[in-house]
Each structure stands twice: as structure tokens, then as C-alpha cells.
């Protein structure tokens, strides 16, 4: 079964057209793209192009030499529409955020390993922990969990009011603790002291993920994190996007693109 699932979900080079663009927050833009092949597949009743929460698209951005990896923030199986949320961080992401509606893009997707959605059921609930633009892949995970009628509780941090996005959407799925200008893991820790935690899915800046590990480890709470690193090929061949992982020999590098981007927090070295 696993192999056929993998086949269904295998990466392909595809073209997509930006059909809508929303200013979500300061420096944050939400793009909806129509995947040409995805729509055809949807019409044929095939699911082979459907990405899963935690997977990413490797996008060729006009004017940039290297592709840019962007988390899938949503995908509609019916229409074959892909949702990407991008923060203007550097040259490539700014160029992508500046593309007008109607622009055509080349994407390689879906890539990477998804969040373990199937594990949520044994925990009964999922807790989302997000920092800033790290919320993008978690919106997709929260939506899919909610569609499966699983309990979702969210903890999201933003650096200031102007950067807040996605909170109303998260509230549709369950309670949300919003932290603006503070430390989201402190709020998480307080709630954990009085409430049994769910399985945690997290994404955000490295210091937040490091703090999350310190919150989870002593309590034996399981958490999966989506990591980010500058990327090359996106498929696991070039070995440039590595992150430090604990191994039986002490330490090893794993590929964020092909071994991740989702890792069990207990194996990641945030040093």
C-alpha cells in the first residue's frame, strides 16, 4: 500500500497560473494557483497530484537562478487549486510575492514528507504551534485534521500586530492562543500544565522550535516540526539543505528536502 501511495503522490514538474492574490499581513501574500495538470487529474477523478500537509512546492521564480521551496498552505482536490503563503524575506520570495495575477509558474511538487496525520487519531487531538510565516503549512494540517473531525488547538505567535494572519481561519478549527510580540512556547507550557497535550505539529523560527523541544522533552510530549533551510535541487540529490540530526553515531546531517522537511523534534539538533 505504501508504495502505491507514494506513486500517487510522486513529484512532477507542473505549470501553474496565479488566479488570485491576497495581501494577508505586512510582507505576507497569499497566492492561489491553478495547477493545470492538477485540474485535469481532478476531472479524471485521480488524486495523483494531491499534496499532503507538510509537503512543499519547489517554485521556479522568474529572475532567480535557484528554485524556492514554499510550503503547501492548502490544496483543493476538486479544483486542483494550490494555496501558497509567502513572506517577502529575500530576493526570490519578494519576486514571487510581487507576481501579478495571471502569471504562469513552473513548479516541482509535491515534495518532501508530510506531517504524520495518521498519528493524530491515537492522540485524539492535534496542537498546532506556529511562529510567523511558519503557520503556512500548519493551516493545511489544521484544515485536514478538522475535516477528519479531530480536535485542533492552536498556539500562534507573531512579532507584532501588522504580521498577524490566518488566526480567524484557525478559529474555525478550534481554540486559538494568539501571542503577539511574546513567546508562544510560554503560553503553550502554561496550558500544558493544566491540560493533557495533543500530538504537536510545529513550524517557525529555529529559536521557537528549540524552545518547543525544551517544553516537550521533560513532559514526554511528542512533536513533529517542519524545518527550513536554503535548498538546491529539492529532491535529495545535491545535499545542500542539510540539518543536524541525532544519530546512533552521535550526529549526522539529513536532507531537509527529502528526509524532511517534517522531523520528529526529538531527533533535531537546533544548535
Amino acid at each position: 500500500m505504501m508504495s502505491s501511495d507514494k506513486e500517487l503522490n510522486s513529484p512532477r514538474e507542473r505549470t501553474a497560473t496565479i488566479i488570485s492574490k491576497i495581501h494577508a499581513a505586512s510582507d505576507v501574500v497569499e497566492l492561489i494557483m491553478e495547477i493545470n495538470e492538477g485540474r485535469e487529474a481532478a476531472m479524471l477523478g485521480s488524486r495523483f497530484s494531491s499534496p499532503l500537509p507538510g509537503q512543499f512546492a519547489h517554485i521556479a521564480v522568474p529572475g532567480s537562478f535557484l528554485r524556492r521551496p514554499l510550503s503547501v498552505a492548502g490544496f483543493d482536490d476538486e479544483s486542483g487549486r494550490l494555496r501558497i503563503i509567502v513572506r517577502r524575506a529575500g530576493k526570490g520570495s519578494s519576486a514571487l510575492a510581487s507576481l501579478p495575477v495571471g502569471s504562469s509558474l513552473n513548479l516541482l511538487f509535491p515534495l518532501g514528507n508530510p506531517f504524520p496525520m495518521e498519528l493524530i487519531e491515537s492522540f485524539g487531538k492535534v496542537w498546532i504551534v506556529a511562529g510567523g510565516i511558519g503557520l503556512a503549512p500548519l493551516l493545511f494540517a489544521a484544515r485536514r485534521a478538522s475535516q477528519r473531525r479531530l480536535a485542533v488547538r492552536s498556539f500562534v505567535g507573531f512579532r507584532d500586530d501588522t504580521h498577524v494572519f490566518g488566526v480567524e481561519e484557525l478559529e474555525e478549527y478550534g481554540p486559538v492562543s494568539l501571542v503577539v510580540g511574546g513567546v508562544v512556547t510560554e503560553r503553550l507550557s502554561e496550558v500544558m500544565d493544566r491540560e493533557a497535550p495533543g500530538l504537536i505539529f510545529a513550524c517557525g523560527p529555529a529559536p521557537m522550535l528549540g524552545a518547543l523541544r525544551l517544553v516537550c522533552a521533560p513532559r514526554g510530549v511528542r512533536a513533529f516540526v517542519s524545518l527550513e533551510e536554503r535548498m538546491g535541487c529539492g529532491v535529495g540529490a545535491c545535499l545542500v539543505c542539510n540539518c543536524g540530526i541525532k544519530s546512533p553515531d552521535g550526529f549526522a546531517y539529513k536532507r531537509v528536502c527529502a528526509d524532511g522537511p517534517v522531523f520528529d523534534i526529538s531527533e533535531v539538533g537546533f544548535e
Partner: peptide
């Protein structure tokens, strides 16, 4: 093991690894 990250940077019409 190779070198620590970051291991890649974009340049004009090229990349540094």
C-alpha cells in the same frame, strides 16, 4: 559528514556551494 549549513547561496546566473 560534510560542512555545516548553510551550504548554498544564489549568485547571478549561478550558485555557490
Amino acid at each position: 559528514l560534510g560542512n555545516p549549513p548553510s551550504r548554498i547561496a544564489e549568485s547571478a546566473s549561478g550558485m555557490l556551494n
